[in-house]
């Protein structure tokens, strides 16, 4: 196992910051520009280290698929954040021409094949793409991201069984953020209730399962790296449980038209009254923590870290400005792309 070199670690921090600052802008847009974001958005704050650590192994020709909580992955893969923000605002310059929105970001050119709004539905899509990779025999792999809640849908069990049986080159990255909307894992998962790591589910499907601290990008990179090497060798899939803490509520409030949308407080506080748990998670925020580690161990100076942050903030503010200025698509474009 090789630890990423200094420059790669700085790149990882930069990507984590870009995801965080992008999503901060999404959040702020609800108050800065009321009404421009519709429907439901879901943020990845708290999972940046897991996303970036996992995708640090992504090579050209690989593919990634995810769920509706999908802003982080394309940023890590290099998607234009202006096009992403324009998509979230439903504008003509959007990544998906305003037809998909926040929950369905897709960037095929970057290998980000698609996102389903149904928690477990994308898991078999990833396995199908992995079958394609297996047939092509170019040692390409597929990264499949989903949440702990999805592991209770049938799609999870069905797909892990076939993926293991067929030795498909897929890495199942289960981001366990502790909550399924307002339900805790222990309330709905037999393994969690029994005090077991969720990666134990891999045993049922005769594949390796590993639980990793998803707030540490280097730990994630090490665990996923092992899974990626196994997949590229043709030995089959791995289930990686990446333990993170979702730092925002599940999504913005669900409300009918006319009610201003915003992000409420986290369910740990609003539903369970566990303010201490939430504040402890905030203290463990992976983004400032990784920055602190890199500054402390001399990988980069505080001034250099600040400079990166400033550049990232400028990028994301430009993305908002671009998106707000982008016009709505032509009405008839609603009828495009129904059929190929």
């Amino acid at each position: 196992m090789s630890v990423p070199n200094a420059q790669r670690q700085i790149d990882m921090l930069t990507k984590m910051l870009r995801i965080r600052e992008f999503e901060e802008r999404v959040k702020r847009t609800f108050t800065d520009h009321p009404g421009v974001i519709r429907g439901h958005t879901h943020l990845a704050d708290g999972a940046e280290a897991s996303i970036v650590g996992s995708l640090s192994h992504f090579k050209k020709g690989d593919a990634a698929l995810a769920t509706y909580r999908c802003h982080g992955y394309p940023i890590a893969l290099g998607t234009d954040t202006k096009a992403m923000m324009a998509e979230i605002l439903g504008r003509v310059d959007g990544l998906c021409k305003g037809l998909g929105g926040s929950m369905h970001l897709t960037d095929v050119k970057k290998g980000f094949l698609g996102t389903s709004g149904i928690v477990g539905a994308g898991i078999p899509h990833a396995a199908g793409a992995a079958w394609a990779a297996q047939i092509r025999k170019k040692r390409e792999v597929v990264f499949c991201f989903f949440g702990d809640g999805a592991s209770k849908q049938g799609a999870f069990a069905e797909t892990l069984n076939i993926a293991s049986l067929w030795k498909l080159p897929v890495i199942f990255v289960m981001e366990n953020n502790g909550y399924n909307v307002v339900t805790t894992s222990a309330q709905e998962d037999a393994n969690a209730a029994a005090g077991q790591p969720l990666s134990i589910k891999a045993k049922s499907f005769a594949m390796p399962g590993v639980t990793v601290d998803g707030t540490d990008p280097l730990a994630v990179a090490a665990a996923v790296g092992k899974a990626v090497r196994r997949a590229r060798r043709g030995d089959g899939p791995t289930l990686v449980e990446s333990k993170v803490y979702r730092l925002s509520a599940h999504g913005n409030i669900i409300a009918p038209p006319g009610v201003p949308l915003h992000y409420p407080e986290h369910e740990a506080i609003t539903v369970f009254g566990k303010r201490e748990e939430y504040e402890a998670a905030l203290r463990g925020d992976p983004v400032p923590r990784f920055r602190g580690i890199l500054v402390q161990n001399g990988t980069l100076t505080a001034a250099a870290a600040d400079a990166i942050t400033q550049k990232v903030v400028a990028e994301m503010e430009a993305a908002v400005k671009f998106a707000v200025a982008s016009p709505y698509p032509k009405l008839e474009s609603a009828l495009d792309h129904v059929y190929a």
Binding site: G94, C96, K97, G98, L99, T106, L113, G114, V338
Partner: peptide
């Protein structure tokens, strides 16, 4: 998927 991706996939 084709629609939601703005025609990127088939």
């Amino acid at each position: 998927f084709r629609y939601m991706s703005g025609g990127q996939v088939k």
